[in-house]
Simulated scan of single mutants.
Amino acid sequence: MDRIKEKMNQLRLEADEASSRVEELQAKVKALEQENLQKEQEITSLSHKNNVLEADVEKLELQVKDLKQSSESGQQHSTQNETLTRRIQLLEDEAEQADKTLREANEKLRQTDVKAGHFERKVQALEAERDTWESKYEEMAKKYNAVQKELEEFQIEVGNI
């Protein structure tokens, strides 16, 4: 009887270890899929932003070309050229600032995803532990009831003797 119990306990431990390993691997797969999705979204976002910036650059290059032609027309156009050049510089500065902000936001998002993954794994581990304790409790309750029943039967047999 003790051997069977030991064997069952050993099998339960092996099953628990296998389950926890599966859960860890599933969590890793989920984290990698999430990271992959995040990177794809980041690529899409950056590609779109790049296209928008390229379009802005083309527009600005056309404006610079036009301004150069108009600056040859006279002094009056030179002030307009300087204004537009400053505007281009401001737009470039804004683009750099937006890029920096985007990188910071992506880093914060990555850190948040890492923390979320960590807490998800923690919750899964705690749920698994809870399930283990519940199954142990149920098993012990069954054993208690069986022993109680054996005790009553034994008392009845002793009383009959």
Rank of each mutant, 00 (worst) to 15 (best):
D99C: 02
N51C: 06
Q26R: 11
E157W: 11
H48W: 01
M140N: 14
L84T: 01
T44W: 00
N9Q: 14
R110W: 02
D93V: 06
E40A: 01
K28V: 11
H77A: 13
L102N: 07
E14C: 04
L53G: 06
K108D: 09
A31S: 14
A125G: 02
I43A: 10
K30Q: 10
K59Q: 15
T83L: 09
L84P: 00
D93E: 12
V29R: 10
L60Y: 04
K122W: 07
Q41K: 12
K39E: 10
A105H: 11
N50D: 11
N50L: 11
E24P: 00
V22D: 11
V52R: 14
E82D: 15
Q80S: 05
E35L: 04
G159I: 05
K49Q: 12
E134V: 14
R87Q: 13
M1P: 12
D56M: 10
T44F: 01
V57F: 06
E107P: 00
A105K: 10
F154V: 01
F119S: 03
K136E: 15
Q38S: 14
E58W: 05
L60N: 06
G117S: 14
K115I: 05
L67P: 03
Q10P: 00
E96D: 08
A55F: 15
A146E: 12
N51K: 15
Q63W: 04
E24S: 13
G117R: 02
R86N: 13
K149T: 15
N9S: 14
R3K: 09
E17W: 01
D93T: 08
E139K: 10
T79F: 08
R121K: 13
L53H: 02
Q69D: 15
N50G: 00
E82C: 04
K7F: 02
L62S: 14
D93R: 07
E58M: 15
D113S: 12
L25H: 11
N81M: 08
M1Y: 15
E72P: 03
N145P: 00
I43L: 07
R21S: 09
R103E: 15
D131R: 04
V147N: 13
D56N: 14
Y137V: 11
K68G: 09
F154D: 07
E153P: 02
M140L: 14
A27Q: 06
L91I: 08
S47E: 15
K108R: 14
E104L: 03
K59P: 02
K108M: 04
E127P: 00
F154Q: 12
N81I: 03
G74P: 01
M8C: 11
T85I: 02
N106Y: 03
V114P: 03
L62W: 04
L151A: 09
M1I: 08
R3C: 07
E14K: 08
A141K: 15
S45M: 01
V114M: 07
G74K: 10
R121Q: 11
E104S: 06
N9E: 12
K149Q: 15
K65M: 13
H118A: 13
V57S: 08
E96I: 05
Q10M: 04
N50H: 10
Y137I: 14
G117Q: 03
K5Y: 07
E139R: 12
E40L: 00
A27F: 01
E82V: 07
E23A: 11
E152W: 03
N145F: 13
K5C: 07
V22L: 08
R110E: 10
A116P: 00
